[in-house]
Amino acid sequence: MEINTYTFLTILGCGIVTWLSRVVPFILVKNFTIPKPVIRFLSFVPVAIMAALFIENVLVFKPGQWATIQWPQMLASIPTFAAAIISKSLMIICVVGIVSMALVRFFHLGM
């Protein structure tokens, strides 16, 4: 059990900037009235962020080049989307996703 000063200060600094990113917006929104157009803008955030997080996980980005597709992730996403449409249950979607990925890797699909 040990930690050096360099590592500790790094963790502390990263923790502070991350915490501020999480908390300051809550304090600002609580104390100021947000203009209507901004609220409408923010109403698109959930779908936009979730789509972006999905894309980040199925593509590989390299600076100066076009992104390429991670085929195992892309293939496993197909049954997962199907499970979402059919079941509308997050638990089933996650289980189908895990099993699909395990099968894709077991049979070396898309690699």
Binding site: V47, F54, N57, Q73, A76, T80, V96, G97, I98
Partner: peptide
């Protein structure tokens, strides 16, 4: 942990939450 497909759970969750949010 990758061989079990467990790392994909998080992507599956984003897929599910994206679709459920849209509809």
């Amino acid at each position: 942990p990758k061989t079990l497909g467990l790392d994909f759970a998080i992507v599956a969750m984003f897929i599910g939450l994206l679709y459920l949010q849209m509809i």
